[in-house]
Amino acid sequence: MTLKVPILDQCALSGNEEQRILVERLSSYLKRNHNLIFPHQHNFYHFVIFTNGRGKHTIDFEEYDVQPWQVYFMIPGQIHTWDFEGEVDGYIVNFSVDTFQTFLLQSDYLSNFPFFLGLKNKSVFVICNESRDAVVRLMDELIAKHFKMDFVKVSLLYLFMLFEKQMEPNEKIEASSYNYTLLKNFRSLVEKRYKDLHLPKEYASLLHVTPNHLNALSREYLGLSAGEFIRSRILLEAKRLLATRRHTIGEIAYELKFSDNSYFTKFFKKMEGITPEEFRRK
């Protein structure tokens, strides 16, 4: 019997219902939440900077080897768990989904940053040597002093920009460009319609571009073809449903708008290498 993966609330981890942003040393956070070793989801944004320690960190069924100066960005809904070895330290930041929506004119401003896309090849990286001292100073200052919330928000935005600067040129798009708007709308559409729209040409039609143009843009900036991006989102949801709900394979196939169980099983095995039943047991 599959156990439901719990969704944790920000106030449950901070111990303060009014605290919309948590900035804390990782060591003290782990000490306070020492039982937090089971797979779980968050309903808030979450990122962790490791400065010391080893172990494993799994995000949406992808396992990473923890190393010093690694940073992990996680968006609401992702499933993660960790298994550390020895003493671990660094910094952890949790903030609610509306933290920046009500602070900036552009309510979806976080989507400008590649590491808030929920893509594994952009949300985990090592902080470059040139930025480490600045990151430590900023994080220590935010923890040590009781700044007003607006200052904390501005400081976090500065940190995000610092991280973005070290990304490769082909991982960034000028926020005012046509391609940026198109890609942003494509990602947003996939997130809203992946259950009932499975083909790139369907999204291209809604975006008023050719499938070839959408495919080229997706390859250049996301590292995946448009079809691969859509299928990876469907696969991820299938994995989450298999891990978090007691639905039958047929019910999951129906929810993801597959014509029948066998088509869903064939899709899953082609993408993952094992059947849905084998993945659930695993």
Score class of each variant (00 low, 15 high):
Lys4Gln: 10
Gln10Ile: 14
Gln10Gly: 05
Asn16Lys: 14
Glu17Tyr: 15
Glu17Cys: 08
Gln19Ile: 05
Arg20His: 11
Glu24Thr: 02
Ile37Thr: 06
Phe38Ala: 05
His40Phe: 02
His42Asp: 11
Phe44Asp: 12
His46Gln: 14
Phe47Trp: 14
Phe47His: 07
Thr51Asp: 04
Gly53Ser: 10
Gly55His: 12
Lys56Ser: 11
Thr58Met: 11
Ile59Asn: 00
Phe61Pro: 01
Glu62Cys: 08
Glu63Thr: 13
Gln67Arg: 15
Tyr72Asn: 02
Pro76Asn: 10
Pro76Tyr: 06
Gly77Phe: 02
Ile79Thr: 01
Thr81Cys: 03
Trp82Phe: 06
Phe84Trp: 10
Val88Met: 06
Asp89Asn: 07
Gly90Glu: 02
Ile92Met: 09
Asn94Ile: 05
Val97Lys: 14
Val97Gln: 14
Asp98Gly: 07
Gln101Phe: 05
Thr102Pro: 02
Phe103Arg: 07
Leu104Trp: 14
Leu105Thr: 09
Leu105Asp: 13
Asp108His: 11
Leu110His: 00
Leu110Gly: 00
Ser111Ala: 06
Phe113Tyr: 13
Phe116Lys: 01
Phe116Ser: 00
Gly118Tyr: 00
Leu119Val: 03
Phe125Arg: 13
Ile127Asn: 04
Asp133Thr: 02
Ala134Lys: 15
Val135Ser: 07
Leu138Arg: 14
Met139Glu: 03
Asp140Arg: 12
Asp140His: 11
Glu141Leu: 06
Ile143Phe: 08
Phe147Leu: 13
Lys148Val: 07
Lys148Asp: 09
Val152Phe: 13
Val154Asn: 14
Tyr158Val: 05
Leu159Tyr: 09
Lys165Tyr: 02
Lys165Arg: 12
Gln166Val: 00
Gln166Arg: 06
Met167Glu: 12
Asn170Asp: 10
Lys172Trp: 05
Glu174Asn: 11
Glu174Met: 12
Tyr178Asn: 14
Thr181Ala: 15
Leu183His: 01
Leu183Met: 11
Lys184Leu: 07
Val190Gln: 04
Val190Thr: 06
Val190Asp: 03
Pro200Tyr: 05
Leu207Glu: 00
His208Tyr: 11
Val209Trp: 04
Pro211Gly: 09
Pro211Leu: 11
His213Ala: 03
Ser218His: 03
Gly223Thr: 05
Ser225Cys: 08
Ala226Asn: 03
Arg231Cys: 03
Ile234Val: 10
Leu235Gly: 02
Glu237Pro: 01
Lys239Ile: 00
Lys239Glu: 01
Arg240Met: 04
Arg240His: 07
Leu241Lys: 11
Leu242Tyr: 06
Ala243Asp: 04
Thr244Trp: 04
His247Leu: 15
His247Trp: 15
Ala253Cys: 07
Tyr254Phe: 12
Leu256Trp: 10
Leu256Thr: 02
Phe258Pro: 00
Ser262Met: 15
Ser262Lys: 15
Tyr263Ala: 10
Phe264Met: 10
Phe268Ser: 01
Phe268Asn: 00
Lys269Asn: 09
Met271Gly: 04
Gly273His: 13
Thr275Met: 13
Pro276Cys: 06
Glu278Cys: 08
Arg281Trp: 12
Lys282Met: 15
Lys282Thr: 06
